[in-house]
Write a protein that binds this DNA or RNA. Structure first.
Lengths: 355, 355
DNA sequence: CTGAAAGCGCTTACAG
DNA sequence: CTGAAAGCGCTTACAG
C-alpha cells in the first residue's frame, strides 16, 4: 500500500488532475512542472493502485479481439474454457471481447477476420498467427496504431508482439524423445514418425528436437521413416496401415500433431495395440480413450487452458498497469499416462472443470 | 457488467445504505423491506462488483496468517514464491500477511504458532495441518470465531476448512506405478520401495495407490520390500546401501518422500547409476542434478508454486465475494524426466521465475 | 496550462 | 430502522 495520487498532489502543491497528467503522459502540462512531479513520484516510489484504476476503467470499458483457428479442432475446447474463465473474472472491470474463429489455416481469412475486429473497435488483439509476411505486415500496422498484440499457441518469427503464450515445440520434441528413450529400456527400438505437415514450423521443430535427443542420448532408437498425414485421420489411417504392413518390425510410433485417432485405429486393426509404443501430443476425448485402452502409451499436453487464460490476463494487466509480460510465456509439457486419465480428480488446480 | 447497488436502491425506492444492509446481512433492517430488496436483487441477477469492493477494502485491510513446516525443507522454496506472488498481486487491495514457520512436525509448535497469529489479529488462516485431534479441535474453534481456514499440501481428515489445495497422494502413487510399469517394458522388475514414515498418511497413500495399480495392471513388477528412512538422507543412504548389498537383483526404486539424495548416493557408490530405475517425488535442486545425471529416471512434481499461490487467492476471493472454492483443489502430478530439466525454458506459464 | 468537481461501485460512520 | 454524506484511488470532462 503505497502513497496515493492525492498525497503527491499535496507534496507538489498542485491538483490531483495535474499529477494525473504528469504520471500518465497526458497532453497539456508544463514540462518543468511535469518533471518536478515525476521526481516526487520517483522519490516516494509511487505505483498506481490497481483497485482505483479498475473502478475508473468502467467509464471507458476495454474490449479485446480474439481470433483463432478453433473450428473443428478439439484442442481449442480447453483454450476456450480458459478464455471464458479469464473474461468472467475480468468482466467486473468492464472488459469484454469479440471472438472470431476459422477452420484451418488461411492467411486471407485470418487477415479479413482481424480487419473486421479492428473495424468493430478493439483495444487489443489476441490471436494464433500464421507465419506469413502478410501477417507480419499487419503486426507492424497494429504497432503503429498502438494496438498491443499477444500471440498464443503459435508464435510468429519476425514481427512485433507484446508476448507469446504457448508451447516450446523444440522442447516438446526433446521430451518426446526422452520418453521414447526410456520406453526402449536400452534395447533397439524401431520408431516411425508421423507428422502433420512438413510446411508447419511447429511440427518440424517437434521432429528436430526429437531427432537431436535421440541422436545424442538414445542411439538404440532407430528412426525408420517420417510420414505426413496433413492432420487428417483418414490419411493417417491409410499411411500407418500401409507402413505397418511394409515394416512389421516397427515397435514405436511418434505422432507430432493431428491424425492421432486414425493412426491408432490402424494400429488396432492390425492387432498391434499394446505392442507398438505410441507417443502423441495433446489430450482430446479420443486421445483420452486410447490412453485408457493402453493403445497410446503417453501423450504430451501443453496446457491449453492456460493458453486461453493467460493472454487475456496479461493483456489486461498491460492496459491497467503498463506491466510488460515476458517475451515468451512457455506452457508446461505435461506427460500424461494412463493413470492420469483413469482418475478424474487429477486435473490440476489451475484448470477448474465444471463439477 | 450487471446492475449497481444504486439502481437497486432506485427500484426499491430506498437508499443505497439500506440496500447494502439487505444484501450483506447487516443488522438493523426491517425484515420485510429486506425481503423485498433481496427479491429485486434476485430478479435483476445482482452481483456485487469486485472493483468497488476492492477499493472499499482499503478502509478495513485484510490480514492472513500463514503457518507451515518450511524450515530446512526445500520443497517449500517454490511454495513461498507462490505465496509472495499472490501477496504482491493483492497488496493493492490492502491485503497483508503474517507468516510463521517451523522445522519438522510438532503439534505443540503448530498450535502455539497459530495461537500467536490469532493473538496478533488475522482475518483468515492458511496452513499445512498435522493430522491430530488437537488440530481438529482448533479448527472447530476457528469456525466458531468465523475465521475461515484453507489447508494446503496436507489435508486433515476430520475438521472443517474452506478448502484444501494440494496433491492427491493416492493418485500420485498410482501414477508412479504406471511409470514403473511402463519402464518395465513388460519384463519382470524387482522393485524396492523407500518411504518416509509409516506414520504419515500421505506416504502410506502413495504406497497403497502404487500397490493397487501394480497388482491390477503390472503383475510383472515385483515389490520386494518397503524401507523407512524418516525423510533423512543419512538413514536413507545406509538402508539403501544395505538393501542393495543383500539384494543385488533389485532393478527399480520407488521413493515416496524424502531421503532422495541419500538413496541416490548409495546407488551411485554401488555403481548402479543408470542400471536401477528410480522414481521419486518433487523437484529440489539435488533431485534436478540426479535427473540430469540420469540417476533418477523420473520425478513427480506436485506444483509447489500453485500450492502457495492458490490458497491466498482463494481466501481473498472468499472475503471479497463470498465465493466458496471447491472442497479440494488438486494440483497436477507432473511427470518430469531428464529433458524437462536440461532446458530451463520449459517451466510452465503459471510459474514465473526471475528472468 | 491548471484546478475543482463529479463519478466509477461499495462501505461506513454519523444523524435522525 | 432508514437516509444522506463522505470516502477508497483514479480518471475525465468542464471551467477558467
Amino acid at each position: 500500500m503505497s502513497v496515493s495520487i492525492r498525497e503527491i498532489a499535496k507534496m507538489a502543491g498542485v491538483s490531483r488532475g495535474t499529477v494525473d497528467r504528469a504520471l500518465n503522459d497526458r497532453p497539456g502540462i508544463n514540462p518543468e512542472l511535469k518533471a518536478r512531479i515525476l521526481n516526487i513520484a520517483r522519490d516516494v516510489d509511487y505505483r498506481s493502485n490497481k483497485a482505483g484504476r479498475m473502478l475508473g476503467l468502467r467509464k471507458k470499458p476495454l474490449c479485446f479481439g480474439i481470433q483463432m483457428p478453433s473450428q473443428g479442432n478439439d484442442f481449442f475446447i480447453d483454450v476456450r474454457r480458459g478464455i471464458s474463465a479469464a473474461m468472467q473474472e475480468l468482466a467486473d472491470f468492464g472488459l469484454s471481447s469479440k471472438i472470431l474463429t476459422m477452420k484451418g489455416f488461411s492467411v486471407e481469412k485470418q487477415l479479413s477476420q482481424i480487419r473486421q475486429l479492428l473495424d468493430e473497435g478493439i483495444h487489443g488483439l489476441i490471436f494464433v498467427p500464421i507465419d506469413h509476411p502478410k501477417i507480419t505486415a499487419l503486426l507492424d500496422e497494429l504497432q503503429e496504431k498502438q494496438i498491443p498484440v499477444i500471440t498464443f499457441n503459435n508464435d510468429i518469427e519476425h514481427g512485433c508482439r507484446l508476448s507469446y503464450v504457448g508451447n516450446d515445440y523444440i522442447a516438446s520434441g526433446q521430451i518426446a524423445a526422452g520418453l521414447i528413450g526410456l520406453l526402449s529400456a536400452g534395447s533397439p527400438l524401431k520408431t516411425l514418425i508421423m507428422t502433420g505437415s512438413v510446411q508447419v514450423l511447429g511440427h518440424n521443430q517437434r521432429i528436430s528436437g526429437f531427432h537431436d535427443v535421440i541422436k545424442s542420448d538414445y542411439p538404440q532408437v532407430d528412426i525408420v521413416d517420417v510420414l505426413e498425414c496433413q492432420d487428417d485421420d483418414q490419411v493417417a489411417r491409410e499411411r500407418i496401415s500401409r507402413a505397418l504392413e511394409q515394416r512389421p518390425d516397427v515397435q514405436a510410433l511418434y505422432i507430432t500433431a493431428g491424425g492421432v485417432a486414425g493412426a491408432c485405429e490402424a494400429i488396432r486393426v492390425r492387432g498391434c495395440a499394446g505392442k507398438i509404443k505410441v507417443v502423441s501430443f495433446d489430450l482430446t476425448d479420443r486421445t483420452k480413450a486410447f490412453l485408457k485402452e493402453g493403445l497410446i502409451t503417453a501423450t504430451i499436453e501443453q496446457e491449453p487452458y492456460q493458453q486461453g487464460y493467460r493472454p487475456v490476463k496479461l493483456l489486461f494487466d498491460y492496459f491497467l498497469d503498463g506491466t510488460k509480460p515476458p517475451q515468451r510465456c512457455l506452457t508446461h509439457n505435461r506427460i500424461l499416462i494412463r493413470e492420469h486419465v483413469m482418475n478424474l480428480d487429477t486435473i490440476g488446480a489451475d484448470v477448474p472443470k465444471e463439477q
